[in-house]
Design a protein around this nucleic acid. Structure first.
Lengths: 201, 201
DNA sequence: GTCTATATCCAGATAGAC
DNA sequence: GTCTATCTGGATATAGAC
């Protein structure tokens, strides 16, 4: 394949994805029709469907991009000195998503979609897996610093990571739909939890 | 209004709601068409629309019913002796929802819908409010038992309740879409968190 | 590669007989 | 109150000219 063709294709896909993201942020996934994306991108229906087979594929691509970017925020944290507090790490993650998506409603809608679209569930599932690994290596370092042995720190990190992810998800969800949600108060409460408290028995 | 009419109306609404719940559990909210509900209920389109103005109203009614029922599971816990462990309380809640809905996918879809339907957001928001109160009175008792003064226990309970709710939401969400989600491991990790650890400063 | 125009489908909701 | 039949709108996706 000629190089220009590939470049062009990649550029077009980016252009379409960017337009789609703007639409999704504005009106949600189901609220956005292909016609909206076509108008926003300045291209035509035919052009869009040449690059993405259907709406689901486009959604999966856009969502995957955003999540991969947020995952990158958490890379390398365990090498920092001083090691940031767990709440700081979680705050970075949730506020990163919030600001990139202009709120959290879109993220919640992604979950709803993933609950019935296997294609999207795959993308989300993969990301949750990555997120677990990223949090796990951070928490391993945190527990070591708190005085646990390497082995104990690793085990404890692996154990609590799903709950840490859950706490972040709860933040995002409540931020989207809970009445009078107070982000600072939520994070302050997380700080009350002593993740390193009693060592796993 | 004649009494029979009211009874009849209530009965019909129940019948329709029950049929709708079966459909929703089977195929999700968006996957269920009004035609599905009509067929499942054994009634006709006209009959349905006489009792519910539209699909959203029907969804909101069904969802509200389910949630109110699960809230009832948490009532009066703070008077029990011995007081159950927090994890036990949370387990009751999440497993209650899971078994009533035949899984958690439906709950996640509700959130996604609520993120863009104000009518439904209201129902969910109200329930989250109730849930906070229920958990708050339980945790107040728990903290008092742990040795805090009434005032400190109340303050601490109010502070952490949003996170407790978040942890439950994380469970439900991951149960629906996370790869290799292990419910028991999640709850075991919650048990590692010492909610009563350091008193709020 | 891209556009316009449109096929095709299926949803939610309603009208009017009974 | 309930049914049957149908309207209407809007969505995705495609066909075919350029």
């Amino acid at each position: 394949m000629p190089k220009v063709s590939d470049d062009h294709r990649a550029e077009r896909r980016r252009q379409i994805a960017a337009a789609a993201l703007r639409c999704f942020a504005r009106k949600g996934f189901e609220g956005t029709s292909m016609a909206d994306i076509i108008a926003e991108s300045g291209l035509s229906a035919g052009a869009i469907y040449l690059h993405y087979a259907n709406k689901h594929e486009l959604i999966a691509h856009v969502v995957g991009d955003v999540l991969r970017g947020r995952g990158r925020d958490l890379e390398g944290l365990s090498e920092l000195d001083p090691l940031p507090h767990p709440v700081q790490v979680m705050r970075t993650f949730v506020t990163g998503i919030t600001s990139e998506l202009g709120g959290t409603a879109m993220m919640v809608q992604v979950w709803g979609l993933a609950a019935r679209e296997p294609e999207l569930a795959l993308v989300i599932g993969e990301f949750i897996g990555d997120l677990r690994s990223l949090y796990a290596s951070y928490f391993r370092a945190w527990f070591v610093q708190a005085g646990l042995t390497d082995a104990a720190a690793g085990a404890r990190a692996d154990a609590i990571v799903p709950v840490v992810v859950g706490i972040c998800q709860g933040y995002l969800l409540q931020s989207a739909i809970a009445p009078a949600f107070d982000a600072e108060q939520y994070l302050a409460a997380v700080e009350l939890l002593d993740f390193a408290a009693a060592p796993a028995s």
